[in-house]
Structures are given as C-alpha cells and as structure tokens.
C-alpha cells in the first residue's frame, strides 16, 4: 500500500515570554492508504499541535514549525503557500478539531458552514449543497437534519456540535482524515455509529485516518497501529494487539494500567502514574519520563534515549525496551 501521509522529523516550538515551549520534538510517522493510526498520550504531549502543524494551522508567532517533510502522497505540504494549503485543507486532508466551539463560527448557522465547504471545494449549487449537508448531518445521527441546518452552534448540545464537525470533515471524502478526540462528547452508542461511519468512508475511499483519542477502548477497536506520545516525543509505536499485549515503554505501561475498569471493585482510588509531566520549556536532559519511571537508571537522565526496534515492527524510545519486550513476551 502507498503512503497517504508521511511526516518526517516534525518539530514545533512556541517562543513565548515564559520561555521556548518544545511542544513537538522530532516526530516522524506515516499512514498508509486505508490505514488507521491511533495516537494516544499524555494530555499536553503535542498530539493536537502535531495535527495542526500537518494542516498548516499552527499560529505563528509564537509557533515555529520545522519539518523534513509533510508528504501528502508525493507533494510536500510544508512547501505549500497559504493559498495552496487552503485548497488542500477540507478537501484532501480534513480535520475534526478537538474543540468544536473554537472551530465553528458562532455567528453562522451550521447549514451555512457546511454548505460553504461544499460550494468552495466541490462547486455545488446552493440547493445541491443544502441536500448534501442535510444528508451529512443525518449520517452523524442528528435527528431532523433539515431543520437542524438552521440551528446556530450554541443551540446544539456538546455532542451535536462535535458531530457537526465530523460531518463537515467527511463532506468531501478526504484522502487523509485527522480526527482529534472526535467522540469525547458522545455517548457510547452514538460513538459506535460515528466510528462505523468513519470505517465506511475508509473502505469506500481508502481514507487514511489519524485517530487521536484518550479512549483506549476506541483505539483497541479502530486502530491498525498505535503511536504513543509523551512530552512532545514519540515514545512507542506498534501494531495494536502487540502494543496492548506487551507494551515496551514504561509510559505506555503506566497509561494502560490507569484505564478504569467496568468490572471489578468500584469506588477505590484509581491507579495513576505518580508525579507530574515535565515543563516543556525546561525539558530534562535525558528521557522526559525518567523522573516518574520506576525502572529509571542513571543512564536514563543523561541523554534522550534513541528509538530502537526491540521486537520486529515495533519502536520504543527507552533504554529498557529490549528487557521489557522480553518480559512481555514480545521479543
């Protein structure tokens, strides 16, 4: 399969009065046509900022984006000017933003916002666009879609706004879909419906999906592969089942261990990784997870651990990766 998106050596820094915040630090990954790549990680670890960088939407200043390449097929988005990016955005690469209220215009009806996308990118007439937009809203499970096209964002529930964003991203059948926490405001039955919709789009159009989510159940069901981020860096990457079966980075182990259970004793304290994430303006010299890691040795704090392949097809940026792979039965 061909690579739909290939991100090479992406870094994003925010130069602020409080110092230089290294939000994304030399991240590389790719997604094939028809593949779903899950992206999980600490809150504040750079998942949204990496996505915004791919879309060319990092505010500058204070943002500074550096990349070896952001390849959409054989074109490098990193070399595109603003106008060229606008033409690609929403059509070939679409994004479901984490925060619907900041990306929907509060002054326009959702119908206006949806039809605008279709008029610009697909050249549809207003009437055709209206029909397609209503259809799109119906697909994401919004009842009475024709009437709801006249609603303003504040007249919709949180989950309905999120679904408007999803409908908007899917309108033009994009080649690459970046979905940043697309189902956080949805109940599990509607969530299942939305995930099915995304899979359907993927099957029909070979869409490559980057699925950012904190819901490890959703990752388990949807992703072919999973990337794990911590403090701006990619710390682990593996196919889905091996990652869950035998994580090879201590942060991933801690993350999987913190998932609350639907069965078993309730009401006790939940496990969480001890300590706090590092300040991105003052990253420690070595592994950023070392201060919280139970396996950390002196060497961990000396230099950033290189990314190695502790087992075939897996990557981990941990000095203990090989030992962890053996213990977990991955090696």
């Amino acid at each position: 399969m061909a690579k739909a998106l290939d991100v090479r050596d992406l870094s994003v820094r925010f130069d602020t009065q409080h110092g230089n915040v290294q939000a994304v630090d030399h991240v590389s990954f790719s997604i094939e046509e028809g593949e779903t790549l899950g992206l999980v990680g600490e809150s504040g670890s750079g998942k949204s900022v990496s996505s915004l960088a791919i879309m060319g939407l990092v505010p500058s200043p204070p943002g500074v984006v550096e990349a070896g390449g952001i390849m959409l097929g054989d074109r490098d988005l990193n070399t595109f000017n603003a106008e060229a990016l606008r033409r690609v955005r929403g059509k070939e690469v679409a994004m479901v933003f984490q925060d619907p209220m900041t990306s929907l215009n509060p002054l326009l009806t959702v119908g206006r916002q949806l039809t605008e996308v279709l008029e610009i990118h697909e050249g549809l007439s207003q009437a055709e666009a209206f029909k397609r937009a209503a259809h799109g809203l119906g697909d994401v499970g919004i009842p009475a879609p024709e009437e709801r096209l006249n609603s303003y964002p504040h007249e919709l529930s949180g989950g309905m706004r999120q679904r408007v964003m999803i409908a908007m991203a899917l309108l033009c059948n994009p080649k690459v879909l970046i979905a940043d926490e697309p189902t956080t405001a949805l109940d599990v039955t509607i969530q299942a419906q939305i995930l099915e919709l995304m899979k359907g789009l993927q099957e029909r159009h070979g869409t490559a999906i980057l699925l950012i989510t904190h819901d490890l159940g959703v990752v388990a069901g949807m992703s072919d592969r999973v990337n794990v981020m911590y403090a701006g860096r990619l710390v682990e990457s593996a196919s889905t089942a091996p990652l869950f079966d035998a994580p090879c980075h201590p942060y991933t182990i801690g993350l999987l261990g913190s998932v609350p259970d639907l069965t078993g004793p309730a009401g006790d304290d939940l496990y969480s990784i001890p300590g706090q994430p590092p300040d991105l303006a003052e990253l420690p010299a070595g592994c950023a997870f070392a201060p919280r890691c139970s396996r950390a040795a002196d060497a961990c704090s000396e230099a950033v651990p290189a990314t190695i392949e502790p087992a075939p097809g897996r990557l981990s940026a941990c000095l203990e990766a090989e030992a962890l792979a053996k213990e977990g039965g991955a090696g």
């Binding site: 999980v40 600490e42 809150s43 926490e181 405001a185 904190h214 993350l255 913190s258 939940l270 969480s272």
Partner: peptide
C-alpha cells in the same frame, strides 16, 4: 464531562 479531555492517568488523578 469534567474528565473527557484527559488521558486516563490524569483522569484517574482528577477522579481521585
């Protein structure tokens, strides 16, 4: 929805 945007470790911290 106070913890829906949090990773599970920080979510656990807030729930606790």
């Amino acid at each position: 929805e106070p913890v829906s945007a949090l990773d599970v470790s920080i979510q656990a911290q807030i729930v606790n």
